[in-house]
Amino acid sequence: MDLMQRDKSGDLLVRPAAWMVAGLACAGLVVLGVAVLDRPLSRFAHDGIGRHAVIHAFQTYPESLTRLAAVLIAILGLVRLFRGRWGRLSLTAFTASL
């Protein structure tokens, strides 16, 4: 089943029924994956590992990274204010700092 077809002029034709089937199949696979894989694995990990201090340390952000992100946002804001458009690296850094 093709999701897209072209007409005689070369324009793409959208087939809504095919997209609906694909969307429903995707949603069904997500529900199945959560029910079969995610829930049992998370219960096993919680029962087996629990709330160990090392695991808890990996779940929090260090304060220095939070401060660094705030400084980076301010610097990139000033760059945007004075230079105009951002370059690709600046845009990536801004997105990562959020």
Rank of each mutant, 00 (worst) to 15 (best):
V71E: 15
A27N: 02
R67M: 10
D11E: 12
L37R: 05
V34R: 03
R88K: 09
L41N: 08
L65R: 14
P40E: 04
A17E: 14
Y61N: 05
A96C: 06
V30M: 13
R43F: 09
L72W: 05
S97E: 03
L76E: 03
L98I: 14
V14T: 04
L29W: 04
V31D: 09
T60L: 09
L81E: 07
H52I: 00
G84T: 03
R80P: 03
S90R: 09
V79A: 12
F58E: 01
A53W: 14
L81K: 01
L41S: 13
V14S: 01
G33A: 11
R15W: 00
L29G: 09
T95K: 11
I73N: 02
F94Q: 06
K8S: 06
T92D: 02
R67I: 01
R83H: 07
V71G: 08
R15M: 07
M20K: 12
D11Q: 11
G50C: 06
W86M: 11
L65E: 08
L76T: 11
I75Y: 12
F58H: 07
R15T: 00
L91S: 15
W86Q: 01
D47S: 13
V31P: 10
G87P: 00
L3Q: 02
A74V: 13
G23F: 01
M4Y: 10
L41P: 04
C26D: 01
L65Q: 07
A18K: 06
V71A: 10
L72S: 15
A74C: 10
M20D: 05
F44C: 03
A74H: 04
A74E: 10
A69C: 07
A35N: 07
